[in-house]
């Protein structure tokens, strides 16, 4: 699979990473290289094989419905690069 510049641009936008146009060619080549190498997986016969999401062979445990967390806005917001009145702050969003 060889990626073109447009695809790299699209993927970078999806991932919210700014990629200068001047880097697109190089990145397309590099990513194509890795994806091409990954494509050796196409040799494998996977007929009837279940996909493996987790190696953990157990049942999902559930917790009780108890409030035992939160309640400290200061701790939650103290690492924020910008904040106001207990809120996190971002550039204005138009919905």
């Amino acid at each position: 699979m060889s990626l073109d510049k447009d695809t790299v641009r699209k993927v970078a936008t999806l991932a919210r990473i700014k990629v200068p146009d001047s880097d697109l060619d190089h990145m397309a080549k590099e990513l194509s290289g890795v994806l091409g190498w990954i494509e050796q997986l196409n040799e494998v016969d996977i007929a009837g094989v279940q996909p493996m999401t987790s190696v953990a062979q157990m049942r999902l445990k559930m917790r009780a419905d108890e409030v035992r967390d939160g309640g400290d806005a200061e701790k939650v917001t103290q690492n924020a690069p910008e904040g106001a009145h207990g809120f996190f702050v971002v550039p204005k969003v138009v919905e």
Binding site: I38, L41, V44, I46, V49, Q50, P51, M52, T53
Partner: peptide
């Protein structure tokens, strides 16, 4: 083509 296939090979 990629993710699901990789998960299947992971099973193998």
């Amino acid at each position: 083509a990629y993710y699901l296939r990789a998960q299947r090979v992971r099973s193998l």
